[in-house]
């Protein structure tokens, strides 16, 4: 049974690249364009990993992680933050909210797959 990963990012191109990379590795992918969109798409289906950007319109990544952790079906789901090198405080805030994993932008597909597979193998 393929593992399902949700990618939340307001940049369509990033969603696309991440989507292609993950699907290529054998994961199922759900895309969302911001925190609110992502929350709406969390409808109880099994999701093995959520990857989210921090700065997004409507609802930022940290709020989204905090909200998602309140949902019974997703409270134990691993969350990965996409952060920039400079934003260490964001990384700490993300960790505090419950996103223990992180990936530093910019990244390339192999790095992403490597980080993802530490949490969920396809």
């Amino acid at each position: 049974m393929a593992k399902t990963i949700m990618i939340v990012d307001d940049s369509a191109s990033i969603r696309q690249v991440v989507g292609i990379a993950l699907k290529g590795a054998g994961y199922d992918v759900i895309e969302a364009c911001d925190g609110r969109d992502a929350l709406n798409k969390l409808t109880g289906q099994k999701i093995n990993l959520i990857i989210t950007d921090v700065n997004m319109p409507n609802m930022d990544g940290i709020t989204f992680v905090t909200e998602a952790k309140k949902l019974p079906a997703y409270k134990f789901t691993p969350m990965m933050m996409l952060t920039t090198e400079a934003a260490d405080d964001k990384k700490q805030a993300g960790k505090a909210a419950g996103a223990k994993a992180w990936l530093t932008k910019p990244f390339q597909a192999p790095t992403l797959l490597d980080a993802v597979s530490k949490l969920v193998l396809p």
Binding site: T77, P78, G98, K100, K118, L119, L121
Partner: peptide
């Protein structure tokens, strides 16, 4: 660890790579 979404099995599986 579990509550934070960390599954030790995942890391151990990854280690095998």
């Amino acid at each position: 660890a579990f509550r934070n979404g960390m599954d030790p099995l995942s890391f151990i599986r990854y280690l095998r790579t």
